[in-house]
């Protein structure tokens, strides 16, 4: 049974410490992060997701970002990150585009 977490719409630099603290509180459980409402994602917040994914890998737990918004995908794109870096799957993006 995975824990759910909803990302804020505006993930700017100021939101990164909050996001990090929230996710730290979820350690020890598989986590599914809902990024569908994200309208803006900055570098530091994306870095938190990268670090979280890395942490969950170390912990042997699942960490997934699903679903995710186009804005979140675009932010990764702009920064040269892959969706898998943050725990999302490109397949989700394809699915999203097909249903759009």
């Amino acid at each position: 049974m995975s824990e759910g977490y909803n990302l804020e719409a505006h993930l700017d630099s100021a939101a990164a410490p909050v996001l990090a603290a929230d996710l730290k509180a979820l350690r020890g459980k598989s986590v599914r992060v809902d990024g569908g409402a994200v309208r803006f994602a900055g570098t530091l917040s994306l870095q938190v997701l990268i670090a979280a994914r890395r942490q969950w890998l170390e912990d042997g737990q699942d960490f997934t970002v699903h679903p995710f918004s186009g804005a979140l995908g675009a932010a990764c794109c702009d920064l040269g990150l892959s969706l898998t870096d943050i725990g999302a799957s490109p397949d989700d993006q394809n699915d999203m585009e097909r249903t759009a």
Binding site: A16, P17, A20, L23, R27, Q47, A51, A52, R54, E58
Partner: peptide, 14 residues
């Protein structure tokens, strides 16, 4: 980028 437990979220490791 370190695992979350070691991350200072105000610092960039990228």
């Amino acid at each position: 980028v370190p695992p979350l437990s070691l991350l200072d979220p105000t610092m960039s490791h990228l």
